[in-house]
């Protein structure tokens, strides 16, 4: 089963729609609450990253019996140093984004913490691809 969504860069008003929809499906599939929470937190962070940094992006979630695989891909500035970005508190978010309560530098660390597998590929000036896998208990 597959769900796909588009994300518009800069549109903080509507950030959270994909995570809410994915959550609804997972709950209906009797996935345990803790796992659903992890997935939703990771996906929301990924969404906000796209909104805060990139121009546009897509979310696609593939759900099977035992796991969910989420791809978040964007056209954006890319991440020059992924290792640095994975450090808690490291942020390149603009003042404008920080003033809106985002961009605290916890995005990638939070995604790492809440997923079983996290893979990030990025080309500077082109965009970033994120793959997240969570297994159901």
């Amino acid at each position: 089963m597959k769900l796909t969504f588009n994300i518009q860069g800069g549109d903080f008003t509507h950030a959270g729609k994909p995570s809410s929809e994915v959550k609804k499906v997972l709950k209906q599939l009797n996935v345990d609450g803790k796992t659903v929470k992890n997935i939703v937190i990771a996906l929301y962070e990924a969404e906000v990253n796209v909104v805060a940094h990139a121009w546009k992006g897509t979310v696609s979630a593939e759900i099977d019996e035992n796991k969910i695989t989420i791809f978040v891909e964007d056209d954006g500035p890319g991440i020059p140093d992924i290792e640095l970005a994975m450090q808690a508190g490291y942020s390149t978010a603009s003042k404008q984004v920080r003033d809106m309560g985002f961009g605290a530098g916890m995005g990638l660390p939070n995604m790492k913490k809440n997923t079983d597998e996290l893979l990030i590929e990025s080309i500077v000036g082109k965009g970033t691809k994120v793959k997240m896998v969570n297994y159901f208990k």
Binding site: V25, K27, Q28, L29, N30, I63, E65
Partner: peptide
């Protein structure tokens, strides 16, 4: 939790 499609995940996915 109230499951719209039942507790069996495989069946629930089919129904969904």
């Amino acid at each position: 939790p109230h499951f719209a499609f039942g507790k069996d995940r495989v069946k629930a996915m089919e129904k969904m």
